[in-house]
Design a protein around this nucleic acid. Structure first.
Lengths: 349, 349
DNA sequence: CAAAACACTGAACACGTGTTCATTTTTTGA
DNA sequence: TCAAAAAATGAACACGTGTTCAGTGTTTTG
């Protein structure tokens, strides 16, 4: 009786009627726009409270031609780093008053369908955490004035911004650590069909190593995993040992590979840091655990998320600003698998 | 020129004009409702294709009083099981043609705000993967005819359905395994301020153990972790050893606690299965890895997700069906920390 | 062959909001 | 005190869809 006629939720019309004002004023109060006298505002708020009124976001979005939704494209959430990145994004999206529309995507075709559906919801922005945004789809977004931001990759697509962990900085930190520890023959472990960021990390790492004179071309050993993830790293280690190869230090494209490789080496009787140093990427919780204590590059997901939203809002304001590519600083977290040993202590075995 | 006037996306009106029919027919084609001649349908589809027309979901939802969104409440995605559960839900939600509106929630207050926002988007359903749905908020959903389903808990809220892993079955499987292995003094490890499902698992486990005569009251040892997650389990193990206690077999409320406890015991010189058996809950990827090889209860997240959506749709059709509480069968995955040993092999040390 | 059933179409309304524009009321400045 | 400026208000339109209802032409039925 006191509220919502016939189960339907109250509309601004109902509130206006009860408060004895026009619907326009109600709209003004709830969209915080235009002027409204303090007295009538209070009347309206009280009536709204009594009726349990809440703005209908669908109608609001229809009118404004823009919803307060943000589309997020994710993939392989089973990877701990991916899920922690999503966690950061969600946190920041909500803090800014938006709502996340999350879609998991497997192949490029699904990505196309997904982004198309995002536009149908008139999202305020699209965040692509994985996979390469197809050029024509992005063009469609630009036509609709929907900002697009990609994470941990950068490419030359006009009007699409990118936020990426600073792979060059990561490479430098790792190279310096290896040099400091006296590592001579260095390995780079990556998945055969890696992501853009994986490939880029390897490329930059190689450049930096040569730059610093830490190794000749022949010294940098490419270790290729046939599978991704923990199991891929482990099998790579087994193959590595079978072939009788040897390394001082290994840098891995991600945490999963690193843990797997370390365990695989252990199964073959080698351990870090006694026999070799190993450094991972992505400071996932697992790498900190007792069984691993992995020295690792730490990506700041919260800072990443903040930059992403900041870019979205900037381009939402003015769609024609120049493309921005931001690099987020990383840290080297020193743990057991590459401690601050004296050079002489390495290869003690 | 060929499409969308002035950057605005094409509307059904535009399509109708180009195809030389009324807007009503366009709507009929795209909502797959009512009759429309094959010939005109084709004209319309061609015109739509030419203009790149796509239904505006906001307008559609406004009219239908229901969007094709489904609200998902999550918490602590850093827990691998939580993220794999979300993965399953996303997959199923998309397969059914919906879109997931994901919100991470920390305290009960946030949960309230969140569900309220869900109703503002006129979602087709709400999935609560964590936290207790506040009774009055749920009442609000029921008033709006929005179905609500909770996961891994069940409570007596009218018109709210629950889907829960079969904790009784899990307890039986574990109890039988411990009995088969000749374990005598059993421990139950849980976080001090555990979730509903954690507490329930412990309660049911205790019941089953007594039922089967596997242990007296005095034999079941409650091990309480002061923190949640890996570190909590590890510290619990240290305290446990300090107090000089001893157990045959330990059952853990979740995988994180289990891994932590195992590592903690290892730091104290005890290992499984040589010194004790340990069985975890949630078959997360980590538990399968070389360093753990944890025997564990496996929850079927995909089946859970399927049931959830099935319940959502059922109650969407008829809001007044009786409350349904479904139990999803679980499996015991035998690995190294509680293998199929002969009874005599246990406690060999 | 008339009548009834059927397939198809378009005009008009409803959904709930934001916003413009003209109008009324209040405040300001001398 | 009065003109001018500022603030507050309400009527009306637009956003893009689904759906009802009446109307037209076409096929089936008895």
């Amino acid at each position: 009786m006191t509220n919502s006629r016939r189960g339907r939720s109250a509309s601004a019309e109902d509130v206006a009627k009860l408060a004895g004002v026009s619907r326009a004023s109600v709209s003004r109060v709830f969209s915080d726009q235009g002027n409204v006298a303090r007295e009538t505002r209070e009347k309206i708020l009280q009536a709204a409270n009594e009726l349990g009124y809440q703005v209908n976001f669908l109608a609001q979005g229809l009118n404004r031609k823009r919803s307060q939704l943000i589309g997020v494209v994710v993939a392989r959430l089973s990877d701990p780093f991916r899920s922690s990145l999503l966690e950061g994004l969600l946190s920041e999206i909500q803090r800014k008053g938006y709502q996340a529309l999350v879609t998991e995507v497997r192949d490029a075709n699904e990505l196309e369908m997904t982004i198309r559906r995002f536009t149908q919801f008139r999202v305020s922005g699209v965040v692509v955490t994985s996979g390469q945004p197809p050029a024509d789809l992005v063009k469609e977004c630009v036509q609709h004035n929907i900002p697009v931001v990609g994470i941990n990759r950068h490419m030359d697509i006009p009007y699409v911004d990118f936020v990426c962990s600073d792979n060059k900085m990561a490479a430098s930190l790792v190279a310096e650590q290896f040099i400091r520890c006296g590592c001579k023959s260095i390995g780079w472990l990556n998945y055969k069909e890696s992501t853009w960021s994986g490939i880029n990390r390897g490329k930059v790492f190689y450049q930096v190593m040569v730059e610093k004179g830490a190794c000749d071309e022949s010294d940098l050993l490419q270790i290729t995993a046939e599978m991704d993830g923990y199991e891929g790293g482990r099998q790579a280690a087994h193959r590595f040992c079978e072939q009788g190869k040897i390394v001082d230090g290994v840098f891995c494209a991600n945490a999963q590979l690193a843990c797997g490789f370390l365990d695989g080496m252990r199964e073959n009787g080698f351990d870090a840091p006694a026999d070799f140093h190993i450094i991972g990427f992505d400071n996932t919780p697992q790498t900190a655990q007792y069984s691993y204590r992995l020295t690792t590059i730490h990506q700041d997901v919260l800072e990443t998320a903040k930059r992403v939203l900041s870019r979205l809002e900037a381009r939402g304001q003015d769609p024609h600003i120049v493309q921005s590519i931001e690099e987020i600083p990383v840290k080297l977290v020193i743990r057991n698998t590459s401690p601050n040993f004296e050079p002489t202590m390495i290869r003690a075995k």
